[in-house]
């Protein structure tokens, strides 16, 4: 029987959008969908999960040692309830990637990472080689353990559902690791992976200060801000802005690449955007091979005029 578990991504009070994309992937698999909300003092998040369209049941594991959702303890919860499921899905976020392979190994299952399509309940499509090839893979494991590329599945509605919430016991604290602290980058902007538009800067920006000229552009487009690895490495902007093979995968309606050459590792993270704009002074830059609209020229001249034009 097909019964799918989705590991929710939440902040204790609300459920993050990545969960909705993952439930969408679960619907493609078929069967009953259960959502696991593991954390501490996260009853509100469990309630929110129960509203998600298409969810049959919410499993709520609440314990002090689940507070910071450490991989060892969350994987233990997943493993404890795994046997009733044919599929276990998590979004391919830093959290899902951290926890799910640990659970998969304990279940002796070979995880299928970052699927972009469900062909059948045991067959999935996933990108390999930075998205330069797509592999169709068939799993022989009794439980299919899967992370989901969120940009490949349209989110289900956050409301409309009325699932029952059931408490599940959490296995004891592993005691293996403990949480020390967190530096959260605060921003008023939309979240990078779910924004409708993204404005990214690269090494061509020259400095962190110069990124300020992208802000009015992002304001005008109601966009999130991103960056190439080179810009992050140079310390211009925080690490969680990185778009690419080893950073975040985005697929907004509009992606604006400013001073980014378009290395394959960067393209891997944004080439599924609907409309791509590139601004680069080098007309040979590979970014122009994927851009719908390109402007060749000095970004320091073009960006301010673009901001003005958008206001008109």
């Amino acid at each position: 029987m097909t019964q799918v578990l989705v590991l929710a991504e939440h902040d204790g009070k609300t459920v993050r959008k990545a969960t909705l994309n993952t439930v969408a992937a679960a619907q493609k698999v078929g069967g009953d969908i259960h959502v696991l909300v593991a954390g501490h003092d996260c009853a509100a998040a469990a309630k929110a999960a129960a509203q998600i369209a298409g969810v049959a049941k919410v499993l709520h594991a609440d314990a002090p040692h689940l507070k910071d959702e450490l991989a060892e303890n969350v994987a233990a919860v997943v493993v404890a309830i795994a046997k009733q499921f044919s599929h276990i899905l998590a979004p391919a976020t830093s959290h899902g990637k951290n926890v799910l392979p640990r659970a998969a190994a304990l279940l002796d299952c070979q995880q299928i990472s970052e699927i972009i399509a469900v062909e059948s309940p045991d067959t999935f499509v996933r990108p390999i080689y930075a998205g330069n090839a797509l592999a169709t893979v068939k799993s022989a494991d009794p439980i299919k353990v899967i992370t989901v590329r969120t940009t490949a599945f349209d989110a289900v509605a956050a409301s409309g559902g009325a699932a029952a919430v059931e408490s599940v016991a959490a296995p004891a604290d592993s005691g293996l690791s403990s949480f020390v602290g967190r530096e959260v980058a605060k921003s008023e902007r939309p979240e990078l992976t779910s924004a409708r538009a993204v404005v990214s800067g690269g090494r061509g920006m020259g400095s962190g200060d110069n990124f300020k000229i992208l802000e009015p552009l992002a304001d005008g487009l109601k966009a999130a801000m991103g960056a190439s690895r080179a810009a992050v490495d140079a310390g211009f902007v925080p690490n969680d802005w990185q778009v690419g093979q080893t950073g975040k995968i985005v697929a907004p309606e509009l992606y604006v690449a400013v001073g980014i050459s378009g290395a394959i590792q960067h393209l891997a993270g944004m080439k599924d955007s609907r409309v791509i704009v590139a601004i680069n002074k080098d007309e040979e830059a590979p970014i122009f091979q994927v851009a719908d609209y390109g402007i060749v020229g000095d970004l320091f001249k073009i960006v301010p005029t673009l901001v003005e034009e958008l206001k008109k």
Partner: peptide, 22 residues
């Protein structure tokens, strides 16, 4: 544990146009 049934190239984006200015 995973059988690779096939490997294909991803759909290609076609290069678009260059525009003169903002």
């Amino acid at each position: 544990r995973l059988a690779i049934l096939k490997v294909v190239e991803p759909p290609k984006r076609k290069a678009g146009v260059k525009v003169a200015d903002a």
